[in-house]
Measured scan of single mutants.
Amino acid sequence: GLTEEQKQEIREAFDLFDTDGSGTIDAKELKVAMRALGFEPKKEEIKKMISEIDKDGSGTIDFEEFLTMMTA
């Protein structure tokens, strides 16, 4: 499992990506986040990433899903 410290770091990354503070990361926010990390993702790639992570089919990534992605 994760230490509380690791969870906190992932939470901070999540909050950075969640620019509108909605508690979820949408495609637009993910794209901005990827760019910040030096990637140039295409729209299809973003969609694919979200569909792989987005277990509940909401079209957005919540913290639990993000946590799973970061620790996979």
Score class of each variant (00 low, 15 high):
Ile46Phe: 13
Asp20Arg: 06
Ser58Lys: 12
Asp15Trp: 07
Lys47Thr: 10
Asp20Asn: 10
Leu2Thr: 04
Gln8Phe: 06
Gly1His: 14
Lys28Cys: 14
Asp54Ile: 13
Arg11Gly: 02
Pro41Val: 15
Lys31Trp: 15
Ile50Val: 10
Glu65Arg: 14
Glu12Lys: 13
Phe14Pro: 00
Ile46His: 04
Ala36Glu: 08
Leu67Asn: 01
Asp62Leu: 09
Thr71Val: 11
Glu44His: 07
Met70Val: 15
Glu52Thr: 08
Gly23Gln: 05
Phe14Met: 01
Ala33Met: 13
Glu44Cys: 13
Asp18Pro: 01
Glu9Cys: 15
Leu30Tyr: 01
Lys28Val: 05
Lys7His: 06
Pro41Ser: 06
Glu45Trp: 15
Glu40Val: 13
Glu45Ser: 08
Phe17Gly: 13
Ser22His: 04
Leu67Pro: 00
Asp56Cys: 14
Phe63Leu: 04
Glu29Ile: 11
Leu37Ala: 07
Glu52His: 10
Met49Glu: 03
Arg11Lys: 08
Glu40Gly: 05
Gly21Ser: 05
Ala36Arg: 06
Glu65Val: 12
Ile46Asp: 04
Ile10Arg: 02
Gly57Pro: 05
Met70Glu: 00
Ile50Pro: 02
Met70Pro: 00
Val32Tyr: 15
Lys7Gly: 02
Gln8Cys: 13
Glu44Lys: 05
Glu29Phe: 13
Asp56Phe: 09
Thr60His: 07
Gln8Ser: 08
Glu4Phe: 08
Asp15Met: 12
Phe66Cys: 01
Pro41Phe: 13
Thr19Trp: 11
Ile46Thr: 04
Gly59Phe: 08
Arg35Glu: 15
Lys28Tyr: 09
Ser51His: 08
Glu45Asp: 11
Gly23Glu: 02
Met34Val: 03
Gln6Tyr: 14
Phe66Lys: 00
Glu40Phe: 14
Leu30Cys: 07
Glu64Ala: 11
Lys48Arg: 08
Arg11Ala: 02
Met69Gln: 01
Ile61Thr: 00
Asp62Ile: 03
Glu64Gln: 08
Leu30Ser: 00
Gln6Gly: 02
Phe14Cys: 04
Asp20Tyr: 05
Ala33Cys: 12
Thr68Pro: 00
Thr71Glu: 14
Glu64Phe: 07
Asp15His: 06
Thr24Leu: 07
Ile46Met: 08
Lys48Trp: 11
Glu45Leu: 12
Glu44Ile: 05
